[in-house]
Each structure stands twice: as structure tokens, then as C-alpha cells.
Computed example of a mutant assay.
Amino acid sequence: MLTLAAQVDENAVTPGVIGFIAIILVAGATILLLLDMTRRVRRTRYRSEARERLEAEARGEILPEDTPDGPAADGRTPDAPR
């Protein structure tokens, strides 16, 4: 049986340019996946908050002018005393 391992210097073996490019591609794909995941989680959270706010309004727990979207129709800010 022929053994090639005895002829190769283990300290001189490197991944080379192809290995460097492969790592860069994997890192880039990972970053893009993380950005996409963050965007999707944020969108899901905002939708659930909006759904909860609408359900609370329908139950009469909060008034539409108390939403954090801006001032009430009568010009008061949501934080102003009644």
C-alpha cells in the first residue's frame, strides 16, 4: 500500500484561495440570513402588537386616541391628563 502522508509537510498545507473564497461566501450568506431573520421577527412582532391593540379597542379596554400613533382627535397628546 502506498502512503502519501509521509511525503506531505503538515505545516505547509493551507486551504488556499479556494478555501478563503468559500469562507467568505459562507460568512456572507450567514449575514444575509441573519438580516432576513431579524426583519421577519420584527415584522411578526409589530403585527401581533397591532392585532392586540385592535382586539383591545374592540373590547373597549383602550380608546383609539390612546394608541401610541399620535395625538388624539381633540388635540391632546396620549400622555396628557384627562
Rank of each mutant, 00 (worst) to 15 (best):
I62F: 06
R39M: 07
P15N: 14
R82A: 08
T38I: 08
G19P: 00
A73M: 01
A58Q: 14
L25Q: 14
D69E: 11
G16R: 01
R45N: 09
L25N: 12
D36S: 14
V26N: 06
R59P: 02
T3H: 10
A6Y: 04
L54F: 11
D69P: 00
A22C: 07
L32I: 13
R43W: 08
D66H: 06
T30E: 07
F20I: 10
A80E: 12
R45I: 13
P81W: 03
D74R: 00
A27T: 09
R51I: 09
I23H: 12
A58M: 07
E49V: 04
P68F: 02
G19K: 00
I31W: 02
P64S: 04
P81R: 06
P81A: 07
A73Y: 01
L25D: 13
A27F: 05
S48A: 11
A72S: 08
V8M: 05
R40M: 06
V17K: 14
T77A: 09
A29R: 07
P64R: 04
E10V: 10
N11H: 08
A72E: 03
L2P: 10
D79W: 05
G75I: 00
L32M: 15
T44W: 08
L63W: 03
A72C: 04
T67Q: 07
T44S: 13
D36T: 14
A73N: 03
Y46I: 08
R59S: 08
R40H: 06
G28P: 04
R47G: 11
A29W: 08
M37P: 01
D74P: 00
L32W: 13
L54R: 14
G16K: 05
D9Y: 05
R39G: 10
L32H: 09
E10H: 08
E55K: 12
Q7K: 12
P15V: 14
G60A: 08
V13I: 14
T14N: 09
Q7F: 06
R39D: 10
T67C: 05
D69M: 00
D74E: 00
T14P: 01
R45S: 12
I23S: 15
P78M: 02
V13P: 01
P64I: 02
G60D: 05
R82V: 06
V8H: 09
A5W: 02
R39V: 11
A50H: 07
L34Q: 13
T30M: 13
Q7S: 12
P64Q: 01
G16D: 06
R82G: 05
